[in-house]
Structure formats: structure tokens, C-alpha cells
């Protein structure tokens, strides 16, 4: 990609823009336009989103989001903020003024989840190597983000830790490299593997405990337009007390599991069914039980070599 494209920087210009007209930047196939008056949030945002490509005049906006004060006076007295996408019936809740990044990330996640029906969307982490992607569906809190982050620091290209975006026509996955949300115990595990400046400051006492956002690797941002087909579906399960093992799923179970991870499959109907059937035919599916991150990374590399 040509470097004439401007990136988000920690500059006074972008700091100002966030408060005034907002910043428009690209995340994979989407263009987000965000705005907020909060100083702390603007610092946090520029730190975490530094290096994301700004959208050009020729690109239309996909999502609009602002993080605003819950009530005009509140902002000065006792800061409380919330995400606002401008639509009725959003699930956003007021948060303490310190948790602006959380409001922003949750707001963007909601927008992706509710308005990307161009894609069949999986609640999953996704990495790629050698043109082959691995889909890792899973609920929060079972190690999906940690494993995705770990792999992306070990020679794999990071696609997403939250939204696997499948083009149902081409069966290729689109990267959506957003900051990786590390929670609680997974924070020290990853902190020892990255330069400190890649990790955002800790957000304490969030509804999910302590959260730190990890900046996506440089190559993930530079190649965010390069798609890849999946060749493997893994269901990671971190369990320090269990025997580590790899269990292949029978086809019908694989179908049911991956369908369960497809967030918008009811909205896509027949399109989703065809894509899920093709995906189940093309990819082998495994349950991966592991005791440590390093062990999991070795297991995934082995699987990739032996079950292409």
C-alpha cells in the first residue's frame, strides 16, 4: 500500500479533530467516523489507534459514533459518558469518565455486529499464515483473545480477535484489525511478550474486570485489505488443570458449532446456510485444550502443518 495514505497520529491536529469534526479511519472493509469531547479519551484513543489509515475523500462512512456526556452538567460534576450511534434502541450504558475507551470499543463493536450483513459474521478470533486463515470461534473468557494475540506475535498475521468477517460469495475472510481487548489474567501473559508502549493503560473496574487494549501489529494494519480463505476451525479452551489435547469434531457437530458462532446467520438466511455448508466442507474442525499459551501456539502450528 502506498504511504501517501495518512495515518492517525498522536498529533495536536488529530487531538483537536476528535473533538470537532471527528476522525474518519479505515478498519478492514469499514470506515468509522468517531468523535468525542473528552480529553482523556482523546489521549487514549490516539495512543491506541495510532497508525490506522485515515479514510480518503473517496470513501463513504460506514459507522458514526460519538462518546458523549450522559447529561450536560454531569460532564463537569462527575464525568459519566456513553456511546451514541444516533439510533434508537441501542444497548449502550453510561460508564465512569475513566472508561471512555471501553465505551468507544463497545460502541464500535455494536455497530459492526448490527450493520455488517454484507458479511457472514463470526464471533471469533482469526489469524493467517501462508495465505491460509484459522477461524477460532468462542465466547469471551475462554482464551480466544489471548491465543489470537499470542499467535499474532509468533509469525501469524492478525485479522481480528472479535469479528470474523466472511464474504459469502468468495468464502474469503476480511481482516478487521482492531485493538485486542485483554482481560484480567491474560494481561500479564501478553505484557511480557510485547513492548510496553503497545499496551494501553489499564482500565480498572469495568463490567469485565481490568481491561488493557493491545495495539494491532504493524503488518496487520498495512495489509488490512488482504483477505484469505480459512482452512482450519479451532475451538480453543484454556484449562491449566486439564490434559492438553486436540479433538477433531465430526461433520455434523462442526456444522452446528460454527453455525452457533455465526452472529448474523438468521439475518442472512439462505446465503448463510450455503456459506456454512461450504465452510464445513472445506475446513476441518478441532477442539483445542491447552495448559499454556506457548503450548497452544505449538499445537496450532502442528495442526496447520498436518491438517492443511
Amino acid at each position: 500500500m502506498g504511504r501517501d495514505v495518512r495515518d492517525i497520529t498522536r498529533s495536536p491536529e488529530h487531538f483537536r479533530a476528535l473533538r470537532r469534526e471527528g476522525l474518519r479511519f479505515r478498519v478492514g472493509p469499514f470506515v468509522a467516523h468517531v468523535r468525542t469531547p473528552f480529553t482523556r479519551l482523546r489521549h487514549d484513543f490516539l495512543e491506541t489507534y495510532e497508525g490506522f489509515p485515515l479514510a480518503s475523500e473517496a470513501e463513504a462512512t460506514t459507522f458514526h459514533l460519538q462518546v458523549r456526556a450522559t447529561a450536560p452538567l454531569r460532564r463537569w460534576l462527575r464525568p459519566k459518558l456513553m456511546a451514541d450511534a444516533g439510533f434508537a434502541h441501542t444497548p449502550f450504558v453510561p460508564l465512569p469518565g475513566d472508561l471512555g475507551m471501553l465505551a468507544m470499543e463497545m460502541g464500535l463493536n455494536w455497530l459492526v455486529a448490527t450493520s455488517s450483513d454484507r458479511f457472514l459474521m463470526f464471533h471469533a478470533g482469526l489469524v493467517e499464515r501462508g495465505g491460509k486463515a484459522i477461524l477460532m470461534p468462542g465466547a469471551s473468557g475462554i482464551g480466544k483473545s489471548t491465543l489470537t494475540a499470542g499467535l499474532s506475535l509468533s509469525g501469524w498475521r492478525f485479522f481480528t480477535d472479535e469479528f470474523g468477517l466472511l464474504d459469502p460469495d468468495t468464502l474469503a475472510f476480511h481482516p478487521h484489525p482492531r485493538p485486542i481487548s485483554l482481560k484480567n489474567e491474560s494481561i500479564p501473559v501478553l505484557a511480557e511478550r510485547v513492548m510496553p508502549e503497545r499496551l494501553g493503560r489499564p482500565l480498572h473496574e469495568t463490567p469485565k474486570g481490568t481491561i488493557r487494549y493491545l495495539k494491532p501489529p504493524r503488518d496487520a494494519l498495512e495489509r488490512m485489505a488482504d483477505t484469505a480463505p480459512a482452512s482450519l476451525i479451532l475451538y480453543p479452551n484454556y484449562n491449566p488443570n486439564a490434559k492438553s489435547q486436540v479433538i477433531e469434531l465430526p461433520k455434523h457437530e462442526a456444522f452446528a458449532m460454527v453455525r452457533g458462532a455465526a452472529v448474523n446467520c438468521d439475518r442472512l438466511g439462505e446465503t448463510a446456510f450455503r456459506a456454512l455448508a461450504a465452510l464445513t466442507d472445506r475446513c476441518r474442525s478441532f477442539r483445542l485444550i491447552y495448559r499454556s499459551l506457548d503450548q497452544a501456539i505449538r499445537m496450532v502450528s502442528d495442526l496447520m502443518e498436518h491438517a492443511p
Binding site: A58, E59, A60, S115, D117, R118, D266, T271
Partner: peptide, 18 residues
């Protein structure tokens, strides 16, 4: 239409069909 616009319209069309 530009890809980003088309993507949003294709998604909206699917939702309406559903």
C-alpha cells in the same frame, strides 16, 4: 457503486429480504 457503499446496500437488502 463504490465497494464501501455497495457493501452497506447489499447488507440492507439482505435484511429486507429476511
Amino acid at each position: 457503486l463504490a465497494a464501501g457503499v455497495r457493501d452497506q446496500l447489499i447488507g440492507a437488502r439482505r435484511v429486507a429480504e429476511m
